[in-house]
Design a protein around this nucleic acid. Structure first.
Length: 674
DNA sequence: GTTAGGG
DNA sequence: CCCTAAC
């Protein structure tokens, strides 16, 4: 059997498309649109206004800036073109089914959700994500580059090159090589051998993390040349100092296969690896999400939200480099409500990486994040008449970057699940609470009461060095381990322990026992619909429930360190997150019907275990609810039905099963009463 | 923790 | 999908 490969996707962040300030304010409506006046700038408003605009737009978004259909927002497809230069993937729009009704990801060049990553993992280097509104007409989207570059930024260069510690060569087993030398060797080899897009298995390895072309591209070039046009136009150079590694959000999704097309049929991979990153200041904070949401961990701990299916782990990881020079990545709409409802869980993660790109003396205090974003309005460049500039400064925020995300996901995971994973990660990070920092000539402007005039933001020369950063709101949560020896097992475990319930441990560095990968590799297979009946007998029998967990949760007492409770922002019940709406797919419905036919109604836990055991996002309550709606749907006329049409055959079975089990239940009750 | 049912 | 009562 071919060893299970894992694909690691490093996301260097998503960028909000440029939002011309003037346009936005002119357009402004609703609470999330707020004119940016003076120093009143709030990340949410910026982000939400972008997303809100996109979400609310029922018209197709303009495909590029020149489309002119919506003067308020311009979408630059330069990135796309640029990226496609060396890209073997086609740029053609790929019509992905939406995995969420409000937003979704599309993977370029892939034409179906049921693909597993294996099927195109050789294209990883050119793999990219898009976030797009899923309004049916809205097929346009910004591009979210798929970055596989993970490393630190060489402080000696102009913010653009990778040097030490490029993570490279992901072993099949999921191990990571991080030694600088090795990375260089790999790089060198790749360069010598004419950069190949084929990252498939070589010598038992799969190169998934390093894109040599990117490296080539990055090195020796100023960021402007590498970045898309949405990226940094005004380099931080001069002010830019990189300390160790950039703080980044890194997420490791060990397994998460909840794709509609594979619900219930995909065994989770229990193999777990952990990233090792040895750069100074690198911090690993892993969060095993009990099921699907990044925010789950705090939930579980806090008790506000619990799940019964705690098998999927997602790991936040810090210390990943974030690049202000990454290719442009735009962020596109995601759920509006998520902007404000996310929990601040990951702030601590981010906060732990307090190294930042700018030499502001405040950076540590600020827990500054890597979300540097700068831009300059073209109008500024154009030097508009001073008359108008006297009172208004035209700024355009070229982009905001979300901290880098890091994912690990089995190559057998479906594209759909990958997209959802990314989606959730992004929404989580964006929504949990960021604030905007203003950098003028590299110096952080902390006094919010200063006017732009006083700050110098009104001067063109300073606008050249105007920067915005997105920073975690709760830098207080920065752990003290920050900057300590990252390789310390205890330190790592402390972090893990602090995050308690849903943290990943790494085999060998903790006492958590994990299943041998081989045990589980075989089960990481999409079994297909027909596998439903045998599902329980195969997978469950082979792997005891406990070991199905993708990542074992470290025992609480593994470390004496007290778990630091993760407090929600006090007095803000609004942070309770509503789960993402995830309409059932037809295949899910089929699985549900099949299970209910067999087990009957009223045994939702069994139904869950039988048919949706690996669909982490489906609780038995969900299944029960879905059955309820299915019954309702089956009873109403087809014209009244909404959503993805369920085949009449399935609805007939729903009615039949419902009738049968209802009758049976009634009989039993009669018998019991008698 | 599950189930059932209202919202 | 959430909430809650009931078990």
């Amino acid at each position: 059997m071919v060893p299970q490969r894992r694909v690691d996707y490093g996301f260097n962040g998503y960028q909000v498309p440029e939002v011309p300030r003037a346009s936005r304010s002119a357009r402004g409506k609703g609470p999330i649109r707020k004119k940016l006046e003076g120093n009143q700038i709030h990340a949410f408003e910026i982000l939400a206004s972008v997303a809100g605009k996109l979400l609310e737009s029922e018209k197709p978004l303009p495909s590029n800036a020149s489309s002119g259909k919506d003067p308020h927002y311009t979408f630059d497809d330069t990135i796309r073109k640029q990226q496609n230069k060396g890209n073997s993937l086609k740029e053609e729009p790929c019509e992905w089914g939406s995995c969420d009704e409000e937003a979704s990801f599309r993977a370029c060049g892939v034409q179906g959700q049921s693909h597993t990553l294996n099927q195109f993992s050789h294209l990883q280097e050119n793999f990219s994500f898009e976030m797009s509104g899923t309004s049916k007409t809205n097929v346009h989207s910004g591009k979210v580059c798929f970055a596989k570059k993970l490393g630190t930024v060489d402080s000696s260069s102009s913010c653009g090159s990778y040097s030490n510690k490029v993570i490279s060569d992901c072993f099949l087993s999921g191990d990571y090589i991080e030694e600088e030398d090795k990375a260089h060797v790999v790089l060198k080899r790749k360069l010598e051998a004419e950069p190949s897009k084929d990252t498939s298995v070589k010598d038992g390895k799969a190169n998934v993390l390093v894109c040599s072309e990117d490296l080539l591209e990055m090195e020796g070039k100023p960021p402007e040349l590498v970045c898309s046009e949405h990226d940094v136009k005004v380099p931080f150079s001069g002010e830019c100092k990189i300390h160790g590694s950039f703080p980044c959000h890194c997420v490791k999704v060990v397994s998460r296969d909840d794709d509609e097309n594979s619900v219930g049929y995909v065994q989770p991979c229990t193999m777990v690896e952990e990233f090792e990153h040895t750069s100074v200041g690198d911090r690993k904070i892993k969060n095993l999400s009990a099921s699907k949401h990044w925010r789950i961990a705090p939930d579980m701990k806090i008790g506000g939200y619990h799940r019964t299916d705690g098998k999927i782990k997602q790991v936040y990881r810090n210390g990943r480099p974030c690049y202000a020079h990454q290719r442009s990545q735009k962020i596109y709409p995601f759920k509006k409500r998520n902007f404000f409802n996310r929990r601040p869980f990951t702030t601590s993660d981010r906060g732990c990486n307090c190294e930042n790109i700018c030499s502001s003396p405040d950076k540590r205090e600020d827990g500054g994040n890597c979300n540097a974003a700068i831009g300059r309005s073209s109008s500024t460049t154009g030097r508009e008449p001073s008359k108008s500039n006297d009172r208004n400064v035209r700024l355009s925020i070229k982009s905001f970057k979300v901290p880098e995300l890091f994912f690990e996901i089995p190559t057998t995971a479906t594209v759909g699940s990958l997209k959802r994973t990314v989606m959730e990660a992004v929404t989580s990070i964006l929504g949990e609470g960021l604030h905007v920092g203003i950098l003028v000539q590299g110096k952080k402007v902390r006094d919010d009461s200063k006017t732009l005039l006083q700050t110098g933001i009104s001067h063109d020369d300073k606008l050249d060095n105007l920067g915005f950063t997105l920073e975690p709101k709760h830098s207080k949560l920065i752990y003290s381990q920050c900057g300590n020896d990252p390789s310390s097992v205890s330190g790592r475990t402390q972090e893990l322990t602090r995050h308690s319930a849903s943290l990943v441990s790494r085999p060998g560095t903790s006492n958590v026992s994990l299943n041998p990968p081989a045990t589980n590799l075989g089960s990481c297979v999409d079994k297909g619909l027909n596998a439903v009946p045998s599902f329980a007998s195969t997978s469950i029998d082979k792997t005891p429930p406990a070991s199905q967990a993708l990542v074992a949760v470290p025992p609480i007492n593994a470390k004496p360190l007290a778990v630091v409770p993760f407090h929600r922002r006090s007095g803000h019940p609004a942070y309770v997150q509503r789960r993402m709406r995830r309409p059932f797919s037809v295949s899910e419905v089929e699985a549900l019907v099949q299970a209910v036919e067999k087990l009957g109604t009223g045994r939702w836990r069994d139904v869950k275990m039988r048919a949706f055991d690996n669909a982490k996002h489906r609780t038995y309550v969900d299944l029960k609810d879905k059955w309820k709606t299915l019954v309702h749907t089956a009873r109403i006329s087809p014209q009244q039905r909404r959503g993805e049409p369920v085949p009449q055959e399935l609805l007939d079975r729903v009615l039949a099963a419902h009738a049968y089990w209802s009758q049976r239940q009634a009989k039993q009750q009669l018998r019991a009463a008698a």
